[in-house]
Simulated scan of single mutants.
Amino acid sequence: MDYRTLGRTDLSVSALCLGTMTWGEQNDQAEAFAQIERAKDAGINFIDTAEMYPVPPRPETYASTERIIGNWFKERGDRADWILASKVAGPGNGISHIRDGQLKHDRHNIVAALDASLKRLQTDWIDLYQLHWPERSTNFFGKLGYQHQADADFTPLEETLQVLDEQVKAGKIRHIGLSNETPWGTLKFLQLAESRGWSRAVSIQNPYNLLNRSFEVGLAEIAIREQCGLLAYSPLAFGMLSGKYENGARPAQGRLTLFSRFQRYSNPQSVAACSRYVALAREHGLDPAQMALAFVTAQPFVTSNIIGATSLEQLESNLASAELTLSEEVLSAIEAIHQQQPNPAP
């Protein structure tokens, strides 16, 4: 397993990060424990969760993922072996069950969310605490174009960053990160940190995969020059790039089969491009999912690639991608497809 420095910190994180958003919905605690054990054996030391997980969010399963991870730490006593990341939710539809829908990134809500996560995770600290998505109205979660709303009200970024800095100084969190953030938001947070002497964002967790390489347009240079690397989520585009949904197939336990809300990568352009990537992998004797994951992990702006699985078989395949180096021939073919069908999914 390769290890990379997290931002400007002294932490080394594995190039693959264990994603957890299915735990408590598609996976029970025993299955989650088996995934953690296998990932640790493979050299993964980085685990990512969120107060909102599992997904899709429901009142009945709210925060189950953090509780499962907390139960692991209590049972195994290996908290110090892990770089633990979690996130505070922002405002949005369908999550009124979280703090009664009071999800502004202000002092009260950040402190309340953090304290609750620490209790569920059964730990005294979180290594990386991230803003799950911006409170302000901007383009994220499948929106490429920005439409300004002049009268939109949101918590000043100064207040948000100051309270996060206070939590770092209190020892509750070690570092802060962004997620689903834009170039403007990322630079603004970095600028504020430097001008006020507050804690600096060390990472940004955004979608990145063969169907959505929009991170390269405005954020890749920031990630490299500012040492605020990408934690890439959805590297398999909700499983589309594994090839299991080819020709309209809908496996019984597939996420797209179970949950109609996951349509981000299902438009005709994405389906067509996905088929070309899957075919390319098979032409070269590669597993499509491993090719897609290896492409993401190899990018110079990526700190860690967040892999998720609903079975140990899937996890084994994802782990094997860490040993795959794509040939120049394959990389050139990927670029050719990308040039002809750039970013078909937002």
Rank of each mutant, 00 (worst) to 15 (best):
V88N: 08
R107Q: 10
Q26P: 04
V55N: 10
Q339T: 13
V202G: 03
F141W: 14
E335F: 09
S203H: 07
A170K: 11
A237M: 11
G77P: 09
D100Q: 15
T257V: 08
F215S: 01
A170N: 06
R225Y: 11
I83L: 07
A232D: 00
S311L: 08
E194G: 13
L312S: 00
R58A: 12
E31V: 11
E323C: 03
L114T: 04
I98C: 00
K104T: 12
Q269Y: 15
D2W: 10
Q102F: 07
H284C: 02
R67D: 13
I337V: 08
G285W: 15
N93T: 10
L16E: 03
L121R: 05
G254D: 02
K244L: 12
A193D: 07
S214I: 14
A309N: 00
G77F: 13
E66L: 03
K87A: 05
Q314I: 01
T65E: 08
N209T: 10
G218N: 09
P344F: 03
K119F: 06
L192G: 05
Y3R: 08
E166N: 14
W184P: 07
E31K: 13
S12R: 15
E181N: 05
T297H: 08
L11M: 12
N71A: 12
L84N: 02
R38D: 00
I306S: 00
G308H: 01
Q167K: 12
G239T: 10
M52C: 13
A333D: 12
Q205V: 05
M291P: 00
R255L: 03
A42W: 01
L210W: 01
Q299C: 07
